[in-house]
Design a protein around this nucleic acid. Structure first.
Lengths: 126, 126, 126, 126
DNA sequence: GTGGTCTAGACCACG
DNA sequence: GTGGTCTAGACCACC
């Protein structure tokens, strides 16, 4: 698992973990049916408490991205779950773009950054 | 001020206010030197606690986007302030794009959305 | 709050609390817009840990039955949220009825019990 | 055995098996004296672990619904066993009905559902 | 005041 | 082995 905790990140630890795994799923680094590390192992690897990882897995499960089975671990489960609304999708994008504009980036630079990140995410897609 | 509090929004109220003002500044709806409403007035308009607005202004000030003067209110102050690092800029973008990919949007749809939001933000720029 | 923890109940504590509150909402004992006790107070009243109550509130929030606002408490929010599927509704009913049949109750007794519980739940409805 | 494991079912696997067998007994599909499949065979049929089926049989035995004899399998044994208390019978019913009410079903619809399920269970009874 | 997160560590339930 | 629950207590974020 290529995850790292960044203490400078304002997000909570469990949220960083959940977001990181979402990105791995979106990019295809974690494929449907693939197993996630056990709560205990990931907690050990990242140096955080077991409950913190459990909270991250719980969020992913609630969003339908993974299936957690008592006694047998968690598996990627790309599928339905409640679909976020249009607003919920647009809001983070607007916030991210606002940050880029305020940082002084030009339109072209922003589009470059977006393309860059998007390629990374979609690299697994032909 | 064209701000609204959305109780369905998962962000905290102060964060909604701060983000909303950032977007207004980025889009040019609030120009450099322009005055912001007083904490009291904005709190009254939005029906929220004084401290909540004060917290939003504090964040904007810490980011160098507004200048708060005792007794004379706050003014937009685009420029200066600590520049966010590359990571801090990329992170929200990556998270937003991850959400769009997981929602099942195609590359073209995502680029469309980005262009859309970006035009709105940069509408004031020639 | 008319909740009690039953140590003989096989459900987890947080589940008993969540289910209990659901019943109070269904029966109208807790009305839309009404405030729930604070996590700390309910934890104290029931003699359990704060985190246990927080877990119950988190479940209710995920089901859209309450709105939890950081800093200002939780409110009943009868509304949408993801609707359970037909199976998810029928299963508990089938399990409950199976238990009644195996306990030796006759059809009439079972229907009496059902009517009884249903009246209690719908007592607030004209 | 007409049992199926549903991975979407939030109950544990052993509980699905135990509940399923209880329903078969209540409905008369499994009659007193009839033999249950061996732990090995049922585990193989359902594609689950031996221990999982063993746990289900253990629960049924504890409730006096089956008699397990060393080496000769398990037999349905309707009757005897500790009678569940009134609370233990009412609780699942109340929880099930609460779910139906919160799902927005009307009294008549609920009674229809109950009647429906009850007929299925009691179909073998004259 | 409110809820949210995190830790440490225990014990239970499931497969 | 796996995940789930619970406790005790700390500290932070929000209103």
């Amino acid at each position: 698992m290529l995850l790292k905790i960044d203490t400078a990140d304002r997000r909570s630890i469990y949220q960083q973990v959940a977001d990181g795994i979402k990105t791995l799923i979106a990019s295809g680094d974690l494929r449907e049916g693939e197993s996630l590390p056990s709560v205990r192992q990931l907690a050990g690897d990242l140096g955080v408490n077991l409950n913190t990882i459990a909270a991250a897995y719980r969020e992913l499960q609630a969003e339908g991205l993974i299936a957690v089975k008592h006694g047998s671990g968690a598996m990627v489960n790309r599928r339905s779950g409640p679909r976020p609304s249009g607003d919920e999708l647009r809001r983070p994008l607007r916030t991210a773009l606002t940050g880029l504009v305020l940082a002084g980036l030009e339109r072209a630079q922003i589009l470059g950054l977006v393309g860059d990140e998007l390629e990374t995410l979609l690299k697994g897609v032909k």
